[in-house]
């Protein structure tokens, strides 16, 4: 009989205690964040979308080489001595026109390895995380500031410069050759040696000192030989679908090399 009334009491009492708690919570502010309108603050040093401050970029290609998934493509053209590219914010003089600086953020694994080697700290992770696209091609971010015509102009300029230099050297060599031989008989092989090297750029007009496309290729070629053949193979297969035929060829190349 005693437990009977105790049961009644505890049932009513516990229900009331529970109701008190829920009633209190009726007036505590909600923890909900109204997402698209209100966004949560990201933590410091968050790793999201990459950004390149092109004003500071010197086109050194170090980020591209650091990237484990080769998602950064850089192409540069040497500037003419007369060109004024300006300086970085740290006062470094720029010597290269960056004609192409593409980051395929779809491939990016947000490892931040590209950020550390940058000598001017111009590539960094931002806290932007809403960049989904319907087309995969839209995820290739082009950071190069030069327009297509400008790029063509810079390349033409450089080719002209190279041609002029080559012509000059050729003329100098010719003049040397024409000049009295015996005096500089010893020097002659040394003078002729640079000749073919300088003459090289003449046919390939677009090549630049930094070698725009080749570094990537070099890397993919080099990596499997060094240590990680099994590592590079699947990653290349996974990230590159048939639409990217050049990359597929690349992987084939590496396979055949190995």
């Amino acid at each position: 009989m005693k437990t009977y009334f105790e049961n009644i009491y505890s049932a009513l009492y516990t229900a009331l205690v529970g109701m008190k708690i829920t009633f209190k919570h009726l007036f505590t502010p909600a923890v909900t964040i109204q997402y698209p309108e209100v966004k949560p603050r990201m933590v410091e040093r968050v790793r999201n979308r990459l950004y390149v401050n092109m004003d500071d970029c010197i086109g050194c290609d170090q980020c591209s080489r650091a990237c484990p998934v080769s998602c950064i493509t850089i192409e540069t053209v040497k500037a003419l001595p007369t060109d004024d590219i300006g300086k970085t914010s740290q006062g470094k003089k720029k010597a290269l026109w960056v004609t192409q600086f593409d980051i395929d953020i779809a491939k990016c694994c947000f490892c931040q390895l590209c950020v550390f080697p940058c000598p001017t700290e111009c590539i960094y992770m931002t806290d932007a995380y809403e960049f989904s696209e319907l087309q995969r091609s839209n995820l290739v971010y082009k950071f190069a500031t030069l327009s297509e015509s400008e790029v063509a102009e810079k390349k033409a300029n450089y080719a002209k410069l190279e041609a002029e230099k080559a012509a000059e050297k050729a003329a100098a060599a010719a003049a040397k050759a024409a000049a009295p031989k015996p005096a500089e008989a010893v020097e002659k092989p040394a003078a002729t040696a640079p000749k073919p090297e300088v003459a090289k750029p003449e046919p390939t007009v677009t090549t630049a000192p930094a070698k725009p496309v080749t570094p990537e290729k070099k890397e993919t070629d080099a990596v499997p030989q060094q240590e990680s053949l099994p590592f590079s193979e699947p990653s290349a297969d996974a990230t590159v679908k048939p639409e990217d035929s050049t990359a597929a060829e690349k992987t084939n190349d590496t396979n055949s090399v190995s």
Binding site: T22, H25, F27, T28, P29, A30, T32, Q34
Partner: peptide, 12 residues
């Protein structure tokens, strides 16, 4: 009521 009792906002 259910939302606010659970510290949510409910339909907004």
């Amino acid at each position: 009521v259910s939302a606010h009792m659970q510290d949510r906002l409910g339909p907004m």
